[in-house]
């Protein structure tokens, strides 16, 4: 474990806490893409198939359980919670994410570390996570004004993978024969997709103005 990876995991956890706070405090999920939340639930379930077979550490197992439980809880809230579900922007959250799932799985069948069920699903989860934010970014562009907690949620979610890139660079430099091409390349693509969001987020922070993404 290095400081970059710890910062990445803590930032990721923070993004989830901010989203839970937004939904719990405002009893609303307006501005949140349910499709992105569902994609993340798939990402975690596909990536942590080894949850009960490979024990890495208490921290690792604990965080995996947190990520799976929180993503499923958020999807449940957005679908079934009597109050929260009413504020879902159904007519704006229309990204056809089936293609993202299909393309990620097809790529995982071609490019993986080992051709085993666990490794193919792991690669699938890496590729799917890289594009999982797209429905959310599209929703932000369509929904005009973005409330602070939603903006912070997306910012931390994008920042965590940037920390992971620093972590991979650090491990590449300090550990012999360390390579993570699948996660590394996907991580760069994932972080690049946030580039324009980060720009407008920085502008809104500098001008102390409302975050607004151009349509």
């Amino acid at each position: 474990m290095n400081i970059f990876r710890l910062a990445g995991d803590m930032t990721h956890l923070l993004s989830i806490l901010v989203l839970l706070l937004k939904i719990y405090a405002t009893k609303s999920c307006s501005g949140i893409s349910r499709k992105t939340q569902e994609l993340y639930a798939i990402v975690f379930m596909a990536r942590y198939l080894d949850l009960f077979t490979d024990f890495i550490s208490v921290y690792n197992t604990f965080m995996k359980l947190i990520f799976i439980a929180s993503s499923l809880a958020i999807v449940w809230c957005m679908r079934f919670h009597p109050v929260v579900r009413r504020s879902y922007d159904r007519e704006l959250d229309t990204f056809r994410y089936f293609f993202l799932v299909g393309a990620s799985f097809a790529l995982a069948l071609v490019w993986h570390d080992k051709f085993t069920l666990q490794e193919v699903f792991w690669a699938f989860s890496i590729y799917l996570e890289a594009v999982a934010i797209l429905p959310q970014l599209v929703l932000l562009q369509r929904s005009g004004n973005v409330d602070n907690l939603t903006g912070q949620y997306v910012f931390f979610l994008g920042a965590y993978r940037a920390f992971y890139i620093l972590n991979w660079i650090y491990r590449y430099m300090t550990e012999p024969r360390f390579t993570r091409w699948i996660a590394g390349i996907s991580g760069v693509v994932q972080t690049a997709l946030y580039a324009d969001f980060f720009y407008y987020y920085f502008i809104s922070w500098k001008n102390n103005s409302k975050l607004k993404l151009p349509a």
Partner: peptide, 10 residues
């Protein structure tokens, strides 16, 4: 020895 778990990250 077992190859180090190459999925020690989240």
């Amino acid at each position: 020895t077992e190859q180090p778990a190459n999925h020690d990250e989240l």
